[in-house]
């Protein structure tokens, strides 16, 4: 029996500005099981980033509750669209940033971070500065920076959209295999249907703003272990078509 690690119940978020009141998220309810890889897909501007910010507690919901089944102080790891590595810090120092801030930097956690760097091919680049390594490697460093605090839940906000297409496929493969090996529950946000199908166990399709869950798809790719292989699977096209129709369809029923 799998347990819920994250639960949103009737979550609404309204933004107020001088000229407008924007309902970004309206009465959103969903849950994520432990170990699951969930992709949230929806048209741009529909409120996806807002949902992740709510889960990460960067902003408070207007109404509704968000429950996280974790007793850690730093339960959520949030990976942003760009790597945002600090150019004056070495790769190693960048990776340790989260530990420093949460005051969890000690011999054990430092060793854990260093092991991650070595395991994922960055051992030789620890002392390099970010502008001395490639874009794909930078994204990997950003992921390890997030993993170093050992969060129970990973949030990824269109993590590949800043990369060119070729690099994007490679980095996606990379990130996917790291997340699977570290066995992290993950919520990935994207507007790219193929990307969602190639990584997720479950896909939540959101409506236009204000965001609500329109439909949930389950992806079954048991014999296809990586995103690139999934893209070659026969059912990939079917899934794509279904989700494409759902995203662009007029039917607004749940």
């Amino acid at each position: 029996m799998k347990k819920n690690i994250l639960k949103l119940q009737g979550v609404t978020k309204v933004f107020y500005t001088k000229t407008a009141e924007t309902v970004a998220v309206n009465n959103l309810t969903f849950s994520v099981d432990e170990g699951e890889f969930v992709a949230i897909i929806g048209p741009s501007g529909c409120g996806k980033t807002t949902v992740l910010s709510l889960i990460a507690r960067l902003i408070e919901p207007t109404t509704g509750t968000i429950t996280l089944a974790s007793n850690k102080k730093q339960a959520v790891g949030y990976m942003l669209q760009q790597d945002h590595l600090f150019p004056w810090r070495t790769v190693e120092k960048n990776v340790l940033l989260g530990l420093e801030i949460t005051k969890n930097l000690n011999a054990d956690t430092k060793e854990y971070a260093n092991k991650l760097l070595e395991k994922y091919g960055l051992g030789d680049f620890k002392k390099h500065l970010p502008n001395q390594i490639s874009g794909g490697m930078r994204q990997r460093v950003a992921l390890i920076r997030t993993l170093a605090t050992n969060p129970d839940l990973l949030l990824l906000d269109e993590p590949f959209s800043a990369l060119d297409f070729q690099t994007r496929l490679e980095v996606c493969d990379d990130v996917y295999s790291i997340i699977r090996r570290e066995n992290k529950t993950t919520v990935l946000v994207t507007h790219d249907i193929s990307e969602a199908i190639s990584v997720a166990d479950k896909i939540f399709v959101l409506t236009k703003r204000p965001a609500k869950v329109k439909k949930i798809f389950c992806c079954d790719f048991e014999k296809y272990p990586t995103p690139l292989k999934r893209r070659e699977a026969p059912q990939f096209g079917e899934h794509f078509e279904e989700i494409y129709k759902c995203l662009n369809g007029e039917d607004d029923e749940l």
Binding site: G77, G98, T102, T149
Partner: peptide, 8 residues
Amino acid sequence: LLMQTFQA
């Protein structure tokens, strides 16, 4: 924002 994701 990145700093804030670590509750800085």
